[in-house]
Design a protein around this nucleic acid. Structure first.
Lengths: 327, 327
DNA sequence: CTGAAAGCGCTTACAG
DNA sequence: CTGAAAGCGCTTACAG
């Protein structure tokens, strides 16, 4: 069986208390004892059982991460940074792919509570889930309003939408169409649309938004893009609410022999590493993914440490327009 | 404070033993008692502490996942499936981004042991790490030989390399170049190169492989691709060892005004969802990501359950050539 | 059908 | 500087 503290203690000829103290660098320990203990630990190949420790100290240093899918480049990159930051802070990360499924999400929430996580960071979903309002469980949302008391971190969606739309206007587009998810959601991401509409109106242009439904797959989105081109064959600019959609727009335009950027200009949103590698020609609004991760961790830490006075309820981080070849 | 089993017991007027039995559906419980206990749990909003449970049963239902980065589309998708499968099986998943850093990886390995994970699934790295040989800790490698006794799951890299190369030959290419990582590594992925060389030689063509170093970044890879085009301006076919590299090849070809597929044909490897969305025109060899995940879980489960006779030391899953517009 | 006791592997006051 | 005892929140024989 795995050696335990008692085994180390026996071999070193000391008490379990002493071994624990050596392990945790707590209290006074003579150099001689410390060495004996360390030698015994090495000899037995001992490593402490964190489960037992967690039970006692009532702290797991576990963080739950609930996001739709690591397969999506934006979330994949965000989770990468979150995990990195937490690893450096001595935390571990429990991964949950919610797939935007409310039922799954509730189950994960239960599971994370049972496993005594110190906190939760959760990413975009269709709507707030009241189950997130767990007394004393630190939670931070990313691009997502979970409840009135749960802090949200997001990129400056409004400014991103504004910059994207303005760029298209500056480049001479008049007929500019936006593609986005459903409008009824109160997500920060909806500000991309709001900004688009505001800028269009301010420039005396008519905003037109094509919406795809909440649970839409590849085909549905492709169909909507086809509709867009059929109904507006003379569209000059398209601002897609994310890079995946922008990629589909580009593809459809190519199929129709519409040359980009001469006859059509396209702007995406996200600007993940993966997009920039696979589709570097796309002009897009880059989210500060690492900074979002850092901010979310910072706010969650304030909650964990009980520093409630330091918590911002909303943190908005600046985006960066990356001009490439589609505009 | 959080209610514990004792609180539920008191409220229900029974012993903690009985509550535990209700919780675990073990032994005989009268319907009346069961109801009382359930009511009390609901009233107190009780949920069991898995940490305490784990300590006793010596089983955490935790699996450690060590992969270079969730930001990479292949690993992101693989991890997505692994997590999904494990969630359905009632397991939880601890995520570790090793970033191909041996030091980090060793630390994660320690951490996972301290946290009493039931098993580990680890993805590609530069070389085997002896620390993986932990007595009685179930481990499975994906596309990676960790040690003689650790099972490996991979796509049929040889067949993938063969199909890619043969396609290029069939399409009329004579001068076909391969781009891959360093050859000295004994990874299953190196079979892609081996297959390329075998097919070329069998077709009386000269294999030429451009290698990029182990720790290479964007720029280094781009530089190597530039070299390739400078040194072989008349190259007709390029088989890249993954889709990211293929994307760079396409980009460089465009810059040089080389038209694809007319004057140059390109084949990638991986065929992740993300690639297929962002770069659907790429011909590539699709890895059976979900099947790889399933197989790895299956083999790890055999180890966890002690069914050592059922364990395959090497599982190779079939790939699928997806012909698109770059060939 | 139900309960009292012991124990999972740690840590922390409290003594000395 | 070091140790004996109690306890973190569960579960499992063992009794009854």
């Amino acid at each position: 069986m795995k050696p335990k503290i008692e085994d180390v203690a026996k071999l070193a000829g000391v008490s379990p208390t002493t071994v624990s103290r050596v392990l945790n660098n707590r209290g006074y320990i003579s150099e001689k004892t410390r060495k004996k203990v360390h030698d015994s630990m090495k000899q037995l190949n001992y490593y402490p059982n964190e489960i037992a420790r967690s039970l006692f100290i009532k702290r797991t240093y576990l963080i739950g991460l609930i996001f739709p899918s690591t397969s999506n480049p934006f979330y994949g990159q965000l989770i990468f940074h979150l995990e990195n930051i937490y690893a450096q802070l001595g935390y571990k990360v429990l991964l949950c792919n919610s797939q935007n499924n409310e039922q799954k999400e509730k189950q994960y929430l239960q599971m994370l509570q049972r496993n005594q996580v110190d906190g939760i960071i959760a990413g975009a979903h269709n709507r707030g889930i009241e189950e997130y309002d767990i007394p004393k469980l630190p939670v931070v949302g990313i691009d997502r309003y979970l409840s009135d008391t749960i802090p949200v971190v997001s990129s400056d969606n409004y400014d991103g939408g504004r910059q994207a739309t303005q760029l298209l206007i500056e480049k001479g587009c008049k007929k500019i169409i936006h593609i986005n998810g459903p409008n009824f959601l109160e997500t920060p991401a909806n500000l991309r649309r709001k900004a688009y509409e505001d800028v269009m109106v301010a420039s005396q242009l008519k905003p037109i938004t094509y919406e795809f439904p909440l649970k839409s797959n590849d085909e549905i989105v492709s169909g909507i893009i086809k509709d867009l081109f059929n109904e507006h064959p003379n569209v000059e600019g398209i601002f897609a609410s994310d890079d995946m959609i922008a990629a589909k727009v580009i593809r459809e335009a190519k199929k129709r022999g519409i040359s980009i950027p001469d006859h059509l200009k396209v702007v995406g949103y996200d600007g993940t590493e993966t997009t920039r590698q696979l589709l570097p020609e796309l002009t897009t609004v880059e989210q500060p993914v690492e900074e979002i991760a850092r901010k979310a961790v910072e706010i969650l830490n304030f909650q964990i440490d009980g520093k409630h006075e330091d918590i911002q309820l909303e943190a908005i981080l600046p985006v960066k327009l990356i001009e490439s070849e589609t505009t």
